[in-house]
Design a protein around this nucleic acid. Structure first.
Lengths: 190, 190, 190, 190
DNA sequence: CATGAATGAGCATTCATTCAT
DNA sequence: TATGAATGAATGCTCATTCAT
């Protein structure tokens, strides 16, 4: 998939880029997107100039962070989908995606954007998730384990909602389980 | 002449305060909390100085806006709760609260805060909602229409999640209905 | 002419605006347009914020400075033109304009712009100078004291050139006089 | 193998230096001295590092560009001076110098510096021009074709002025001719 | 009390210069 | 030696908050 970049990118440059993404993910997630770029650079152990060499603007950096997360989620979701028996795959992916995005509302909002307009670079990854879910939804509906009238946009909205609910609930495994139960039960035909 | 009045031309001041709250609600909701205070003052037809006379900081203004919304929601929820038959009251309130907060993620986040730490001034209104919901939840569970293992924090999380889902879905009445259906079905004992 | 502004502008605000223009004129002239905005604000005895309240960008400030200079030159040139006998008026104005712009290459460049494209706000003042000179040139040519084949753009170019020459020469009254002599002799029919 | 060479692959280095000067001349002339060094390096087809290896600072590069131009002008002016009959040589050189600098105000300003303080490296070339012009001026004055009271600094100032005038006029051969006519007539004794 | 001008810390971004590869 | 990635001081501009009018 990825791999072939414009130019191979020097070893140290690649490491700095990775560190920046790592640091930005961490900092944006824990402290919001309002943190100064300098903080992110410091967290990554580089100067601001380096940050701006790799990402032409703060917005571009945020975008790159989201792309990475979406790609990661899409990849894992595909694995899970492949490993599950057809009927349950949607439920497994639902859980996975929500758990991946737990505590990261910035990411949740990125996922939200899967349904609306979004920067070009986000189109790819979010489309991947979208298509995966579309397939899983159809299969689950044909298997009769998910309400037949539910559409893909509604499923995406429910994913976002579940992410928000889990984030709001905080770290309480049993509670989270009960919240999931509500969603998964609700998805089933009554 | 002279005369020491406690609150001389309080009428003007009260109107300005009301206008500011109105304008801030509108502007924060439609354009986010990032808008400069001057914009809000302009929208309210007053100078910035007046804004800061009524609210000591931008944050305080935001807080006041949220308090007002929460109070309004609490009031309506209480009416609805009183008017519904005991068993269904929770479901009616669930819908109401979510619908009130639709499209206002700032507010949703305020509601979210009902479960976690919050500024003193928000404690009151959110406690009111909290208590109302606690009562409704217990009654609904005793009536056997809501899963008996569900706790109040989980219910609050689900409210937040439903708000996020509805906001993400956008204006699609039928879709919104199906999303509600998922939540309300999920709340019921299986 | 000027006088009626959008709003009368509070006394202190007007003073700050004037100070800023004064300081900017001084600083841009002596140290070039590269000086930081903060320096200009400091020279004017105000904060940067005030500078940007009065002039939305550094460029706008530079423009305002140039407009002011051009207006001033235009006004004095008109006085001189009115006071001189028709035949010599062009020569008197030539000297005046060059002397006004001596040592201010930024301004000279602004004058230069009178012939080329320029921001809207500079159009007015530079057009005034242009028209004045057009009239004087024609009269001088009809009086037979200036080469009949010389056009207005060439006259403007010569003004710019004379400004540059005088600036280059530095403060040497006698030398400056001889330089003027060359220009004024050269303008006459051979 | 081994071997201590004074200048190992000097050919490459020399070519890079030449390319840099070429590119810098072009870029500074067309886009001003504000262009980033990286742009110049790119235009020369080398890395920034190479630029800074050859020229210790951006200013040094600008200086080298100006030296080259001045040397070139000096050389041509000497040819022209040698080829002209004594009386007219100054006029021919005047034209030549102005035409060489047309459209290059950076260079014009460099020439301007010939009269005032200047970096050490510019002293040489500008002194050459200066001396050449001093000789031509004296000869022309002795031949009675140039005002006897005109001094060398004034002549230099007029050269700068003529450059500015021609640059301001833009590409209009006939107009430029008339502007030259003014200067050359003005130089003659009345 | 209302007004809006003044303030200045804070921020994203640029660019000359250095240095690891 | 050439390269271009890294650096970080410097800059233009914003905006919450204060205070003179």
């Amino acid at each position: 998939m990825s791999g072939i970049r414009e130019r191979p990118l020097r070893a140290d440059a690649a490491r700095n880029r990775a560190r920046l993404l790592e640091a930005a993910t961490e900092v944006f997630t824990t402290r919001g997107v309002g943190v100064p770029t300098e903080e992110i650079a410091r967290a990554a152990g580089v100067g601001v100039g380096t940050l701006f060499r790799h990402f032409p603007s703060k917005e571009a950096l945020l975008e790159a962070v989201m792309v990475r997360r979406l790609e990661s989620v899409a990849a894992r979701a595909e694995q899970v989908a492949a490993a599950s028996e057809p009927a349950g795959a949607l439920f497994d992916c639902f859980r996975l995606i929500v758990e991946q995005s737990a505590g990261k509302s910035a990411f949740t909002q990125a996922l939200a954007a899967a349904g609306v307009d979004v920067h070009a670079s986000l189109r790819g990854p979010s489309a991947a998730i979208r298509e995966l879910l579309a397939g899983l939804l159809e299969r689950a509906q044909q298997a009769g384990v998910v309400r037949s009238e539910l559409t893909l946009p509604e499923l995406l909205a429910l994913l976002v909602g579940a992410g928000a609910a889990v984030e709001q609930l905080g770290p309480d495994p049993a509670g989270r389980e009960r919240v999931f139960e509500v969603f998964l039960t609700g998805l089933r035909p009554r």
